[in-house]
Structures are given as C-alpha cells and as structure tokens.
Design a protein around this nucleic acid. Structure first.
Lengths: 168, 168
DNA sequence: ATAAAGTCGTTCGGGTACGAACAGTTTTAA
DNA sequence: TTAAAACTGTTCGTACCCGAACGACTTTAT
C-alpha cells in the first residue's frame, strides 16, 4: 500500500497509454482511494484486534451480525455482510466447530436456518467489540468531528448508486 | 448488502449489549459504510467489466500496475495493490499461464523479479480500462462534481492514519 | 574476507470466496 | 389439487488470500 507514485504521475502514464481517450480522473481517484482505505483499515484491524482472538474478517462480521440481531436467518447474515451464501456456509461451519454459534432449522419454514451465539460467543464479542470500535475510532482520528457525518453520507451514496445498478 | 436495519436501531442494539460502555458510533458509521461501499463497487465491477475478460479483481489490479509502470518489480506490485507477496505469486502464475505477463529475474539484483505485459496483455488493458473507468464514473454519478476532490482527501487521510499505525 | 543480518520471491497449509448445480421446502397458478 | 415456479442452504470445483517457513541473493559489520 501507500503508493509511492504521485497521482499526477499516474494520470500522465494512463493518458500516455490511451492517447486522447477521455478518462474521468476524478472518479478514478475517489475509487482508488476507496479501495486503499478499506484495505488498509481491514488489514490493520485483522492484524491487531482480530488476530488476538484468531478471527478472520469475515468470521468477525458474521459474529457481529448474529450478536446484534440473533436469532437471525442465514440469508440475512449474507446480505448484511455482503458476501455469498456459499462463503457463509463455510465460515459458519468453522464458527460452529469452535463453539461460537449454533444453527437450527426453522420449524416455521423448513428452508431457513436460524443462527444464534453461544454463551462463549457472546462473551467473546463483549470483550472484542470495544477493542474493535477503538480501532475504528483510531482510523478516523485525523478527521474533524464534523466531517464524519458527511463522510458517511458520501460513502452511503456510492453504495446506493451501485446497488441500484445491480438490478438492471 | 443494503442492510435492511436502520442505523439508529443498530446503535440501540449495540448499546443494549454493552451497557454503559462508551462506543464511538460516528466512526463506526464511517467504517461500516466504507466497507459496504468498497464491497459494492468491487462486486459490481467484477460482475460487469471484469467478467467479460475472465479476470478477478486482484488479477486486474496486478495488470493495471504493470500496465502503468512496466517494467516493475514484484514487491512494488504487492505494495501498490495492497496484498501479500504470497498472493501475488499465485495470481502472477495464472496471468503468466494465460500469456498476459512475463517474469524475468533482474540481472542487477538477483533477488528481484521484473514483470512486464505481453502484447496480448497490453491489448487487453487498452480495451478494458476505458470500460473500467466508465464503471468508476457511474459509481460516483450521484455525487456533485466539486465533492469528489474532498471525498478523495478524506479517504486518503484514513489510509495515511492507519498506515502510520502499522509501524508501531 | 567472511559471518551475520537483511531482502526478495516462492512454497506450503489452512481458511476464505464465488458461481453453478443440487436437494429440500414453500408458494404460486391453473 | 397438483404441477410448476420460487426460495434457501449446502456441496463442489476453482481461484484467491495470508502468515510462516524457506532458499537464494545482497548488504552490512567486523
């Protein structure tokens, strides 16, 4: 990470390879920095907070969603976490094997699986989440307090824009 | 994605599980939306632009870095792309097998590997990148033009803040 | 000069990650 | 009512993804 090349230099190189083709460098800069930031924060939290509990990023997201909304259906976890059902099945097998969650088939609708935290899982989250949030606070420490709201709005707008495209 | 629960409801649930422990909900909202946005855009571009060329996200990032900076050392690609050396080795083996890049050991320093695009790789990028950038433009389509610069700055600040923590 | 320390890319093992195909369940339509 | 359509979670195959250990190479220190 931490690209050693300047933005200007990158733009020149891109333009040199595409002749006079029109490129939107403003949106390119936003997207490039979006992925860099997400990657940097994720790696940081994985290496510090999550490693202490031997949790992967996805495993933590699953635990978090279940912690907040239990009992919760599998499909909700996948949608809330932003990954596929297939991925979720594998991660939940790992978490169930470690005794952190339980899965039971719904009696109301035989297609659904309801997920809950075990006492062990709840204990872990109660200890883990404050540390995680402390990491989040640190990642935004150099921003002004009154920038945080508008910043979150910009990000939400991007998500909404892209999600609405999916349908088409 | 597209969480169906409101932010307020989530905050209430978190607080209910942690008692009077202080949680920074502003930074939590920023981070949550950061990961959502990055994930949504990535999935969108993978499913549309990249799928047409049978490329994974990481494979595209590798090709892009090499395209701009060739000949380039492996370590630079990994750093610029934000993934590990181990990941890079695997992805480059795939790309070399498909005849899109070449790897040659440096004669100046026997530890380094220099990576270049093949003619086929360059042709693909010249066709692919304008479509990719069009996708980026679309993802920012609902933002005001004069918001893009400050938005990129906010993201860059987060990256810088987190990266500076790594060292300690 | 040469041993020690550092750097680089690869390999290895285990855990993600996804689309496609599938079986079981529920809903819809005629 | 009952066949068709829709939905849910799992399995399968393939590719990614990382930390740790490793071998090859270069730089540093004495």
């Amino acid at each position: 990470m931490a690209g050693q090349h300047t933005l200007d230099e990158t733009e020149r190189q891109v333009q040199a390879r595409l002749g006079d083709l029109k490129i939107d460098f403003d949106s390119m800069a936003v997207m490039s920095n979006l992925f860099r930031a997400a990657n940097a924060v994720r790696n940081y939290l994985e290496r510090t907070v999550l490693a202490q509990h031997d949790l992967s990023w996805t495993a933590f997201v699953v635990l978090w969603v279940v912690w907040i909304w239990e009992p919760v259906e599998s499909r909700v976890i996948a949608e809330e976490g932003g990954f596929s059902k297939a991925t979720l099945t594998g991660v939940m097998q790992t978490l169930e094997g470690r005794g952190l969650i339980t899965r039971t088939r719904s009696t109301k609708d035989g297609r659904l699986v309801l997920v809950k935290l075990t006492a062990k899982g709840r204990k872990m989250m109660k200890q883990l989440f404050p540390d995680f949030n402390q990491g989040e606070r640190l990642a935004t420490a150099d921003l002004k307090q009154n920038e945080l709201g508008p910043f979150a709005d910009l990000l939400r707008t991007v998500t909404t824009t892209v999600e609405s495209q999916k349908v088409n």
